[in-house]
């Protein structure tokens, strides 16, 4: 690991003044469960680390009108255990509980979970790929068992976050600050496609800090579930995951939000599956149709075709469990 300067600012404004104009030179340190490993592996060599986990402005889970606001530095274990989250947005608690291990959830923050880097073997082994400023995706013709089947190219990473699909399904908004200026962005717009920018996974500018996630309360009459398929039972990233929230009225699906993790470079909203479900009774046939619709347009690589039937089945089962 290279030497770096460590700064522990007193306020969010102080933290923001430390940030630079270039990605990678100054980096924010929250839970550190991803960043410190990356630094030890020389994937990232920041000159300066700005600690933000302690910042008062980034703490806490605040129930508000029609939802909860979660400080970005809130640990995942606090999200999982929050009575407010469990009541207003249980889908988020379910997803956060599937992250890593208890030790990781104790350290990691929700903001960090949204901003973590991909788990692609080539990225993690420091191949000069798109993510490292190169112009090749080594997985495209390499070992791509765990890569994207949807929306891939030119980089075929999958977004690794568990909380992201849940937050997209819930229609959350993220707040971003430069210390002085603030902006709010619907979380769906927070993530970027590699077609827009293959080097990054989100819209954060070098001088910006993700400060808060506003999660609207799940609609009345809605049911939700997060299902994550892994190789291991725990301590694993998703082969595919499904965050599904279905609102029914009189036995008929009024609204459905179906978001996939682990299959695309960003949390993938399965709009066709959502459309397939609306106005139907949620039964085995409807769930199966939605599962098939979810993977429409999938273009698997040489070694990840299994993700297509796996995702299809996982979506169908997730939905059926809500019936």
């Amino acid at each position: 690991m290279n030497n770096f300067t460590y700064i522990r600012p007193a306020t969010l404004r102080d933290a923001a003044t430390q940030l630079g104009k270039e990605h990678g030179k100054v980096m924010l340190l929250a839970g550190g469960t991803d960043l410190l490993g990356e630094m030890k592996d020389d994937l990232r060599v920041p000159e300066r680390l700005v600690a933000i986990k302690h910042l008062r402005e980034l703490q806490g889970i605040r129930p508000g009108r029609g939802g909860v606001r979660i400080g970005a530095a809130t640990s995942l274990v606090d999200v999982v255990e929050s009575a407010d989250v469990r009541r207003q947005a249980p889908l988020l608690a379910m997803a956060a509980e599937k992250v890593g291990t208890p030790q990781i959830r104790n350290m990691a923050t929700i903001g960090g979970n949204l901003c973590q880097r991909p788990r692609c073997w080539y990225y993690r082994n420091n191949y000069p790929c798109f993510k490292h400023g190169g112009n090749v995706c080594y997985s495209a013709t390499g070992e791509n068992d765990f890569h994207a089947i949807l929306e891939g190219g030119p980089s075929y990473i999958v977004h690794p976050s568990d909380t992201a699909p849940a937050l997209v399904a819930l229609g959350a908004t993220v707040r971003i600050s430069t210390g002085g200026r603030e902006r709010s962005v619907p979380i769906e717009k927070f993530f970027v496609s590699p077609k827009q920018d293959p080097t990054r996974e989100n819209i954060l500018q070098p001088n910006e800090i993700l400060t808060e996630i506003e999660v609207p309360a799940a609609p009345a009459g809605s049911k939700a579930i997060y299902v994550k398929e892994m190789v291991r039972e725990i301590w694993d990233f998703a082969l595919c995951s499904v965050a599904a929230m279905v609102t029914t009225k009189g036995g008929v699906v009024e609204d459905a939000r179906i978001v996939l993790g682990g299959v695309a470079p960003f949390p993938y909203r399965a709009l066709k599956a959502e459309a397939a479900l609306k106005g139907k009774r949620l039964d085995q046939a409807a769930a199966a149709d939605a599962g098939a619709a979810a993977v429409e347009g999938a273009r698997p690589l040489a070694k990840n075709a299994y993700k297509v039937p796996l995702t299809q089945a996982t979506v169908a089962r997730a939905l059926l469990s809500l019936a």
């Binding site: 073997w121 993690r124 039972e233 725990i234 694993d236």
Partner: peptide, 11 residues
């Protein structure tokens, strides 16, 4: 250990 995936207690 993340990518080689030796089993955990739960596996």
């Amino acid at each position: 250990f993340l990518d080689l995936k030796p089993p955990t207690m739960l596996d």
